[in-house]
C-alpha cells in the first residue's frame, strides 16, 4: 500500500512534520509539537511495513498508537493543570495521574503492547513471510553468481 509516489509523499510529510516540530520548539510553543510528534513516530511503522501495510494495519498498530498517545498527552496536560502546585487528590496506581499515564499508558500499552508486540504479531503478514524470504534468498544467490565482483566490499 505504501510504495512508489505514496512513499515519496509520506517522506515529504515526515519532513514537513519535523519542520513544524522544530519551529514549535524554537518559538517556545512546545505543546504545538506534541501531535505532529505522535504522527511522525507512528509513520515510521507505516514506512517499515511499506507495501505490506493493509487496512487492518491502519487500525493496529498505526491508529491505536495515534489514539493512545493523543489521548494520553491530552490527559497528561489535563491533570497537570488540575493539580498544578498542589498534592494530587486522585492517585492512579498510587501515582500522580500524569506519572501513571506515562508509565502504564505510554510505556506498557503504547510501548510494549502496540509498538513492540505489533511487530511480533504482524511479522508474517506485514513484515516478511516465509515465501517472500525464500524468493529473496533465491534472487540473492542468482545475483551473487552473476555479479561476483559486486558483492565483495
Amino acid at each position: 500500500m505504501i510504495k512508489g509516489n505514496i512513499k515519496n509523499y509520506l517522506w515529504i510529510l515526515q519532513g514537513l512534520l519535523v519542520l513544524w516540530i522544530g519551529i514549535a520548539f524554537w518559538t517556545k510553543h512546545p505543546i504545538a509539537a506534541v501531535f505532529p510528534t505522535i504522527i511522525f513516530l507512528a509513520n515510521f511503522m507505516l514506512i517499515g511495513a511499506g507495501s505490506r501495510a493493509d487496512k487492518m494495519f491502519f487500525l493496529y498498530p498505526y491508529g491505536a498508537f495515534i489514539l493512545l498517545y493523543g489521548a494520553g498527552f491530552y490527559l497528561l496536560f489535563y491533570y497537570w493543570k488540575l493539580y498544578h502546585g498542589i498534592a494530587p487528590k486522585t492517585l492512579w496506581f498510587g501515582m500522580h495521574p500524569g506519572s501513571a499515564i506515562i508509565w502504564a499508558g505510554f510505556g506498557l500499552i503504547g510501548g510494549i503492547l502496540i509498538t513492540i508486540l505489533s511487530y511480533t504479531i504482524l511479522f508474517e503478514k506485514n513484515v516478511l513471510s516465509q515465501e517472500d524470504w525464500e524468493k529473496f534468498i533465491e534472487d540473492v544467490q542468482q545475483f551473487k553468481a552473476q555479479n561476483k565482483e559486486e558483492i565483495t566490499m
Partner: peptide
C-alpha cells in the same frame, strides 16, 4: 526510559528487515 522502550519497537519496524 519509557520513550526509549518505544524505540525498541520503532527500531524493529525501521531496521529489522
Amino acid at each position: 526510559p519509557i520513550f526509549f522502550t518505544v524505540s525498541y519497537g520503532l527500531m524493529m519496524w525501521l531496521n529489522g528487515k
